[in-house]
Design a protein around this nucleic acid. Sequence first.
DNA 1: AGTTTCCTTTACGTTTACGTCAACGTCAAG
DNA 2: CTTGACGTTGACGTAAACGTAAAGGAAACT
Lengths: 135, 135
Amino acid sequence: MTRGAPVTWTIAQIADDFGVTHRTVRHYEDLGLISPERRGTARIYRRRDRTRLALILRGRRIGFTLDEIRTIIDMYDAPRGQVAQLEYLLSQIGDRRADLEARRRDLDDALAELDSLEARCRDDLDKLDATASVG
Amino acid sequence: MTRGAPVTWTIAQIADDFGVTHRTVRHYEDLGLISPERRGTARIYRRRDRTRLALILRGRRIGFTLDEIRTIIDMYDAPRGQVAQLEYLLSQIGDRRADLEARRRDLDDALAELDSLEARCRDDLDKLDATASVG
DNA sequence: AGTTTCCTTTACGTTTACGTCAACGTCAAG
DNA sequence: CTTGACGTTGACGTAAACGTAAAGGAAACT
């Protein structure tokens, strides 16, 4: 008998799985970022909802607002079909990429500065060490 | 007569230079992120203040809160001298680096997904093109 | 002297992203 | 059948990061 991973989850389960509160999950639903099915009044979440939640949380970690995240998500499941649609989507992708790359440059700059700060620290430590040994 | 860049700036000048409002600059001062000198009641900003403002704005772009930014800035001009201080600072640097690297992973993941989305788009466009030519 | 321009502080308003009750439905266990 | 765990919908509260309006000081044209 095969008993794989569940196919549906409750709000408490996914909140727990993703390390957020159920309030947060419902908030994202209020903003239209997730739309789980309903069994009666209760929400039931499927794999697709988990994927979107993962997207949302990653966007949040990167520093996007929930509104920006919505436009990104919308981008991912925009109706692709006509040439005009596709070309619009491609331009959107270009914008997003430029944004992300700018952020990455900032990030790398910050990391480089951290490195040089660390180097100075180790230098200072070495000097203190030498002094201690000699004196 | 040499007329290089100014040595001091008013709040309006640096706000303009950095593309923020004077209200924002004063807000950062309220939070202790910048502390310009005073000439009477007026604020005068020097190069050091500009450096800090640049740090703050970059941190903001990366997605740090102003509180997190404060701890980072404090890190940069912490009193280095004793071994204990230096070692504490090194541990702080380690934490920050881990944080930044996690963010970069998220960023790279997002960029990779954008790439694959773009590839699918171009693929769809090619197919539509072929259909148009043949049909 | 009067007006403009730039600066100041004080203080309340706003948006985002939730937290936190309150009040109620529902389903399984005891 | 009640208790308890888990779910629901409002609705108000809050912290962060400013915006904005009010009221005024001080230098600098005119």
